[in-house]
């Protein structure tokens, strides 16, 4: 079943005209985008400082470490293109949110100060903004490069940006109250993850 040579010549010509980054270009762009996202989050933490409130510093460090580890893992996993297990990828996408949910549950075990929705808004907006910056940077770097599973890979990238933003705001917010955490932090991370994920599914499709 051979192909006509003119058909092949036409395809080769079209391929030559279609821009496509090489692997090293994509790696470099991804590294730059991740650095931008991390730098903005680090600037935020640097400006506001780490405020442990009544929380143990070890608890803060452990949660931040776990969340950032998942962010790195999801970002790394999103560089490949063929996975043997989409279910494993889905679990990876869910992990940062599970960690944040676990923190909300942990907060529920302690004394609960009065909750105010107005107090949730700054944390929610800050998480959205930081995650948005990270997400936009990473999507800009990876646009049009995923030929196979843009939604799953987009969700991986989105989870990565949401996790970084969630960790940064978590370090700066001293409020120990589970509804505040669920709405302001977990809600913010889920919202930014969803928004970036939906945008990514369209933008990174090859």
């Amino acid at each position: 079943m051979s192909m006509p040579s003119e058909w092949k010549a036409k395809l080769v010509a079209e391929v030559k005209q279609t821009p496509s980054p090489t692997r090293s270009e994509l790696r470099r762009k991804t590294a730059i985008a991740a650095t931008i996202g991390l730098a903005v989050s680090a600037l935020f933490v640097g400006r506001h400082g780490i405020d442990p409130g009544p929380r143990e510093p070890f608890f803060l460090a452990a949660v931040a470490f776990i969340i950032l580890s998942f962010a790195a893992r999801t970002l790394f996993a999103a560089t490949g293109s063929l996975w043997t297990s989409p279910r494993g990828t889905q679990r990876l996408v869910a992990m940062p949110y599970v960690v944040l949910a676990a923190v909300a549950v942990a907060y529920a075990q302690g004394p609960t100060p009065p909750h105010s929705l107005r107090g949730d808004v700054p944390c929610l907006l800050t998480t959205l903004a930081l995650g948005g910056v990270f997400g936009v940077a990473i999507l800009f770097a990876r646009r049009g490069t995923e030929p196979l599973r843009p939604l799953l890979k987009g969700l991986l990238l989105a989870s990565s940006s949401a996790a970084v933003a969630g960790a940064a705001v978590f370090l700066a917010c001293p409020v120990v109250e589970h509804w505040h955490f669920a709405i302001g932090h977990l809600g913010g991370a889920l919202a930014v993850g969803g928004l970036v994920g939906v945008a990514a599914a369209r933008l990174i499709r090859a």
């Binding site: 279609t18 496509s20 980054p21 790696r27 063929l82």
Partner: peptide, 18 residues
């Protein structure tokens, strides 16, 4: 044709030694 074009555009995401 679309398959080859997608492979071309997505070549950077092809896993090393995949």
């Amino acid at each position: 044709q679309q398959t080859f074009l997608r492979m071309h555009r997505g070549r950077a995401s092809f896993e090393r030694n995949g």
